[in-house]
Nucleic acid binder design. Structure first.
Length: 198
DNA sequence: CGTCCGATGAACT
DNA sequence: GTTCATCGGACGT
């Protein structure tokens, strides 16, 4: 396994990275131990033209400022007051864009994930949604702005590069975004059991 | 299987 | 005061 570099994130566009991250492994080295999971579903958000992006029209606020940093940091925000949603910032500085990781498949630290999620009945409810997997892997807004090429958060690629079928569709939960809601900026692995919605 | 709705807090108007 | 990149429980088919 090889760790993705800062230039992977900062030198490539969010639409490429969103698709390319599928099948890769995300790691959170938490105080309780290591969490590892395979990325199976992502979405791309990109200012200035994307009305679903928090930084639409290059709106820079306390919340969105990390999206304007050079790619390679985490943008984590609280959604509906409860859920911690995790994004990877991509692209060059001042070019606000990020990949939302919507679903993962657990690989390591699974028992701790079950504890964190209060032992869901169906196994895929452990990590099949953007608020679920962050809760399982103990990722919260406390990590907002952290490097994702560091010791705590990182993403790894399997150098044997296994093939997988990718599906593309419109993004979820952004009906307010007018014409942008139909842009096909969601990507997921066709044969994963951990997709948030079909 | 589906739809409905409350939770809960930060950002924004 | 309203909105929101969600979730889980309640209830109907």
């Amino acid at each position: 396994m090889k760790k993705l570099s800062r230039s992977y994130f900062k030198d490539q566009d969010v639409l490429f990275v969103a698709k390319d991250l599928l099948g890769k492994t995300i790691r959170h080295q938490s105080p309780e131990g290591t969490y590892l999971a395979k990325i199976v579903e992502t979405e791309a958000y990109r200012a200035p033209e994307d009305k679903a992006c928090h930084a639409y029209n290059n709106l820079k606020t306390k919340r969105t400022e990390v999206m304007f940093l050079p790619g390679g940091v985490a943008y984590i925000y609280l959604c509906y007051g409860i859920h911690h949603l995790f994004n990877v910032v991509t692209g060059a500085e001042h070019n606000a864009q990020a990949v939302l990781i919507r679903a993962v498949e657990p690989l390591e630290g699974i028992h701790r994930m079950c504890v964190n999620r209060n032992f869901p009945k169906r196994k895929f409810d452990l990590t099949n949604g953007p608020g679920k997997w962050t809760q399982a892997m103990r990722i919260s807004t406390a990590l907002n702005g952290y490097s994702i090429v560091g010791d705590i958060l990182s993403i790894w690629e399997d150098e044997s590069n296994p093939t997988h079928e990718i599906e593309q569709s419109n993004r979820i939960g952004i009906d307010y975004a007018e014409e942008c809601r139909d842009w096909p900026w969601r990507f997921h692995l066709k044969h994963s059991n951990y997709i948030s919605r079909r």
